[in-house]
Write a protein that binds this DNA or RNA. Structure first.
Length: 479
RNA sequence: GGCGGCGUAGCCAAGUGGCUAAGGCGGAGGUCUGCAAAACCUCUAUUCAUCGGUUCGACUCCGAUCGCCGCCUCCA
């Protein structure tokens, strides 16, 4: 079965067929860079990283654009996040933005998230946004009031198709003061007039101001990907109003469908409740990385489906980390036996590899079902472990290794490069070799003592018939 | 008030109108081992929140009830 993607727009799984053969145009809403990234960002960008990696695995060229929102947008209290952050840290807005943009990329690198093809910044695309707003005014979809510009939703009957909402049903003004500048409470800002206290402001045909939140995504995605995108991704919380507004303004400008497949991932919970800035219960990626490796966090997130919420609880991550260790152990064993690719691949090994590859692809083709795909990976690992205990040709080992790594690491990214060599390695090798001699002399007391001491130092020894191997214990904070 | 999601073993988590309800963690037993560890093998949900309905047959479809969560405001 070919790749099926759940399309939020139609609320069903659909076969994925890109607009242009072999090329995928993909856009994902990026972060607002005014603070450290949190584990919600981790789920979001890991989820879409999987989409990109799998599409590339299938042979597509993927042009992946993810914006950096570095323009402040208005909060309830009339301030914007970036201005607020700048005041908090006594920095220039652009200095603040630079710091957290780097922090964001650092965090994503640690989580083994591949970088987007293009990471456009909102502040670098003000002219494009102004141009788009002007076109909307010219076409009668927007109006100017007192230096601000609003989109007139009465000119766009399709408003609400994505979120299944009807404007009349919403309680406009119940939670937020409706602006009296707007003709209709649901009209949204394309451009806002800036007061003197607003540091980030630009010239426009309507006076000094700054762009509305939604317009940057439309302007930048269309600039780099064209008028119709294959995939637009983001969090469910942005389905309304953000994505709804993007559709309205984009299609009002081009008259063409804006997005073919809308993908929305679910939220991260902490102890059963939503994590949010306003609740103050968010965990930064940086803090999570103090306790878990990037691979462990990534693996944990991929063990639930991207459209399901995930509860970031310590017990659950600890449990999943144990599971990841089994996969890592299999990879380590494969590396251990990997010599050259001499000899012939056994027909059985060839069949096993083909079988698990097919099972894996079947699950991934079903709307990127990573938990089910990982399930097959565990079975594959068991199969590999069993076969490694009997003698295999080098070519067979290599095929098992290549297949396992291709699925687990190229596509899922959960087995990044094994640790780099440490200065202690040759000394540990020596100790283990010497201990082998001691064991040959059946001096169990001394050999067990050595094993215990090495264990305390974070080195685990596995005694085999022919030789003993060792690994650094996982979860060693220093490693 | 409107829109949407969820409730599967001790925990995490896939899944299907009908063969044995994936997988992981944890637990129990076993093989291997000088003893361990790792690995491997076996076992660990007569049952899928509750109650009705449709059906030859539902955990899966429909309805109701209970519980939890999200969105309608900036948020990944």
């Amino acid at each position: 079965m070919p790749l099926q993607i759940y399309n939020s727009l139609t609320r069903q799984k659909e076969e994925f067929v890109p607009l242009t053969d072999g090329l995928v145009r993909m856009y994902v809403c990026g972060p607002t860079v005014y603070d450290y990234p949190h584990i919600g960002h981790a789920k979001s960008y890991i989820s879409f990283d999987i989409v990109v990696r799998y599409l590339r695995y299938l042979g597509y060229r993927v042009k992946y654009v993810q914006n950096i929102t570095d323009v402040g947008h208005l909060l309830d209290d009339g301030e914007d996040r970036i201005l607020k952050g700048a005041q908090r840290e006594k920095r220039d807005p652009m200095e603040l933005v630079e710091i957290y943009t780097r922090a964001f990329f650092d965090a994503m690198d640690a989580l083994n998230v591949q970088r987007p093809t293009i990471s456009p910044r909102a502040t670098g695309h003000i002219p494009e946004q102004i141009e788009m707003v002007q076109t909307l005014i010219d076409k009668g979809h927007a109006y100017v009031v007192n230096g601000s510009v609003y989109f007139d939703i009465s000119t766009w009957p399709g408003y609400g198709v994505l979120s299944g909402r009807r404007v009349e049903d919403q309680r406009a003004g119940e939670r937020v003061e409706a602006s009296d500048e707007k003709r209709h409470p649901a009209d949204f800002a394309l451009w806002k007039k800036a007061g003197p206290e607003h540091i980030m402001q630009w010239n426009s045909p309507w006076g000094r101001g700054y762009p509305g939140w939604h317009i940057e995504c439309s302007a930048m995605s269309m600039k780099y990907l064209g008028e119709t995108l294959d995939i637009h991704g983001g969090g469910m919380e942005n389905q309304f109003p953000h994505h709804e507004c993007e559709i309205a303004q984009s299609e009002a400008v081009t008259g063409k469908p804006f997005v073919r497949y809308w993908m929305h991932h679910n939220m991260v919970m902490v102890e059963g409740v939503k994590m949010s800035k306003s609740l103050g219960n968010f965990t930064s990626v940086q803090r999570a990385l103090e306790r878990y490796s990037g691979a462990q966090i990534r693996f944990f997130i991929l063990q639930s489906h991207y459209r399901s919420p995930v509860d970031f609880s310590r017990e659950a991550i600890d449990a999943s980390a144990q599971g990841l260790e089994r996969l890592q152990a299999t990879r380590d064993q494969l590396l251990h036996f990997l010599a050259s690719d001499e000899g012939d691949v056994s027909a059985q090994v060839e069949q096993v590899c083909a079988e698990y590859k097919a099972l894996f692809e079947k699950e991934m083709n079903d709307d990127f079902n990573t938990p089910a795909a990982i399930g097959h990976l565990f079975s594959f690992a068991r199969e590999i472990n069993s076969r490694l205990s009997s003698s295999l040709s080098s070519a067979s080992v290599k095929l098992l290794h290549d297949t396992f790594i291709r699925l687990a690491d190229d596509v899922l990214g959960i087995l990044p490069e094994s640790r780099t060599a440490l200065a202690a390695d040759p000394f540990i090798d020596l100790l283990v070799t010497v201990r082998r001699e001691i064991r040959a002399q059946k001096n169990w007391a001394l050999s067990d003592h050595l094993r215990d001491k090495l264990e305390e130092l974070g080195v685990a020894i596995q005694d085999g018939k022919e030789k003993s191997s060792w690994t650094y214990k996982k979860n060693m904070p220093a490693l």
